[in-house]
Design a protein around this nucleic acid. Structure first.
Lengths: 320, 320
DNA sequence: TTGAAAGCGGTACCAC
DNA sequence: GTGGTACCGCTTTCAA
């Protein structure tokens, strides 16, 4: 390539990485040759030499979960603007593959890491410390992240939903919750507020992750079998909530007349069921975007906020 | 690392890549040192030296689309078993970023490529030819794939749905379809069969991609405004179909009494709406899995089927 | 079974 | 503004 253009390899390199450092004439000439030959630089070699691979790895429990995929999409989009790509790894529920996945990923020397959640094994933490790259943990809140964090408090979500439902006059509650650590924290927050108010008539139905409509339908069925009919149900996801809504309607229960329903995450369908789902709004694209900003900031040596709380918002709709 | 264990670098390399070529004693010793130091080999250097990067790149229109994410999940899982990882790129609707994305991806020298769809720009095709790696195109069918293909015929899907609905006695039809090339092919197949049977009372409502419940609800609303009430609606996705179902119920239409609905893809929720959605079943995990097999086969020099038609199946449920 | 030497295809560093 | 030289950390090839 270099000899084809009659310049040194380093000049070709500069044309790609620092075009402003190359004389306009040379620049155009080299670019023409590049265009003509269809030359594509080898980032593997570049990465080895420069120790910058220009990609960020992201680990999520599952891509098919819309809750995560939208954050990943915005992360990808923002990083793309700065010339970075995203290598996606799925750790499974519950993060069973995280350790080996992390090793596989770190061996590719990513320039940054996006991790879902804040609980990692000791071995993983040690590896992360050695890797010495920017890391952003998301979807949760802790005062002591490994490096940086973008998330919100699941406990506060649970508390806020409890306050909200109590404020609407409900007194008997049900919880249908996926087997997921963060959902469990939301449930604890929910229960703590109800406990304080001496409203402990709460039945919980656990379902396996990942959630789907069927589990929501079955969840409500089981909840009703438990006796002590709840007037309001808090679900660990909109998906479950929609299943509950379908099941309630199939059983002739009026919503919210007989049963109020609150979901979580505000997936796009939540506003368009009939009646529309009440839920907890999380700005998912913001998570990816701000995570990208944090990583890029660190990479480029800018000062960054270590902890970003993006908050949430309880949305009242036709199901409450 | 090598000197720490008192062996040469090549021996360490063999411990990772060809442990059977190393004496058991040496093997165990080196492994102990690896364990103790937490050494993680550098795949960037390895990739440069061996010209095998041990990853496959996958390009899909959008990860947040469940239709694709499940195939990607099975692709990822199968490749992981063979020590490969997946770099995901999203090209957007309609594949607007494909060209630059492809260049960015090829510069990382993937060992294989998974492409959604069979239409690529001339420039892309040229680059792919130069790259000289195994490529599998998915989600469609053509007698002349770039290299390998795993998919099914969208035209036949449309035809099959038309035959099915006509067989159920329907005579007036509606189509609600996302702005997507493959959905358009399904629609053409649908219309061709109806045309042959002189049943050309078909109204089409186009909606932008990606689909969501709201677009389905609005789609039905617009379809009804068009006059000539359809008795059956074919939607380009289950998501739209569910929106149609919700809107129909909100308007007091009985389903399938007043209106039959058929979706596409058989997403997990389709079986659990009330009534359950009729749809066209596509074995999405099979697409990823077989694509992985094709790529690995090519990489490992095994003979592979160039074209795999995974077929489809029209599922009758409560909405027809 | 193990190792020495020579790259893989770029980039950092410094001189010109 | 441009180029020479060394080297990034591994694997290949071939010899011992």
């Amino acid at each position: 390539m270099a000899k084809l253009a009659g310049v040194s390899p380093i000049t070709v390199s500069r044309v790609f990485n620092r075009p402003e450092k190359v004389a306009t004439g040379t620049l155009e000439h080299v670019r023409r040759v590049i265009e003509r030959t269809g030359y594509v630089p080898n980032l593997v070699a570049g990465g080895l030499a420069s120790r910058r691979t220009r990609f960020v790895a992201a680990i999520v429990p599952a891509i098919s979960n819309q809750i995560f995929s939208e954050s990943i999409q915005s992360l990808t989009d923002r990083l793309w603007e700065s010339g970075y790509q995203v290598l996606l790894g799925t750790s499974g529920y519950p993060m069973s593959r995280e350790e080996s996945l992390l090793a596989a990923i770190l061996s590719r020397r990513p320039d940054g890491l996006f991790l879902t959640g804040i609980s990692h094994s000791l071995k993983s933490r040690r590896r992360l410390a050695v890797a010495n790259i920017p890391i952003v943990e998301v979807w949760d809140l802790t005062p002591s992240p490994i490096d940086m964090l973008v998330g919100f408090s699941h406990e506060k979500v649970g508390q806020a939903v409890a306050e909200f439902l109590v404020g609407r006059g409900h007194r008997r509650f049900g919880v249908i919750t996926a087997d997921d650590a963060r959902a469990e924290v939301r449930r604890m927050g929910f229960l703590s507020v109800l406990g304080e108010k001496r409203l402990d008539d709460v039945q919980t139905v656990p379902v396996p992750a990942p959630s789907n409509f069927r589990l929501g339908r079955e969840g409500l069925a089981r909840l009703l079998e438990l006796g002590s009919l709840p007037r309001a149900v808090f679900c660990s996801s909109d998906t479950l909530a929609h299943g509950v809504l379908i099941e309630a309607q199939a059983r002739g229960l009026s919503v919210p007349g007989d049963l109020a329903i609150v979901g979580f995450a505000d997936l796009d369908f939540a506003a368009h069921t009939s009646p529309p789902l009440s839920t907890v709004r999380i700005d998912r694209p913001a998570i990816g975007r701000r995570a990208a900003e944090s990583l890029l900031g660190r990479i480029e040596g800018r000062p960054v906020e270590r902890i970003v709380d993006i908050g949430f918002h309880v949305m009242e709709r036709g199901t409450t």
